[in-house]
Amino acid sequence: MLPNYCYNTDSLNGGIVTITLIDSIKNIISGTFYFTAMNEYSKVVIEVSNGRFDLNKQ
């Protein structure tokens, strides 16, 4: 991956991960997330919002 496409979080650009479901019967963990991240070369800050995940832990 080219460095110009790398964005990093730090103490000023971070976010939140919220666990919304832990189902120990079906072995599923679900949640939401958002964060901001900055490109260290261009100093452009992006925002990722309304992220969602479902993990099937095995």
Rank of each mutant, 00 (worst) to 15 (best):
I29G: 09
Y7R: 08
L21E: 15
E47P: 02
M38I: 15
I46R: 15
V17N: 07
Y5V: 02
K57I: 11
G31S: 06
I29N: 13
F35M: 01
Y34P: 00
I22S: 15
V17T: 04
I16E: 08
F35P: 06
L2Y: 11
T9Y: 03
N56V: 13
G31T: 06
T32N: 10
E40M: 09
N50K: 07
T20V: 05
T9K: 10
L21N: 12
Q58N: 14
I22W: 07
A37K: 14
V45R: 14
I46Y: 08
A37G: 11
E40K: 14
K43H: 12
N8T: 02
M38T: 15
T20R: 09
K57L: 12
V17P: 05
G15N: 00
L12P: 05
Y41R: 14
I19P: 09
I19E: 06
E40F: 11
R52Q: 13
I29L: 14
D23Y: 10
S30I: 05
G31M: 05
Y34A: 00
N4L: 06
V44E: 15
D54L: 11
N8P: 04
N56G: 13
G51C: 05
L55C: 12
T32W: 01
Y34N: 04
F53S: 10
S42A: 09
I22E: 10
C6S: 06
Y7I: 03
N8E: 04
F35S: 00
I22H: 13
S30V: 09
V45W: 13
I22D: 06
K43A: 12
F35C: 04
P3Q: 04
N4F: 03
M1G: 08
Y5M: 03
N13H: 06
S49Q: 09
N4A: 07
S42K: 14
L55W: 12
N27V: 05
T36Y: 03
T18I: 01
S49C: 05
S11F: 11
K43C: 08
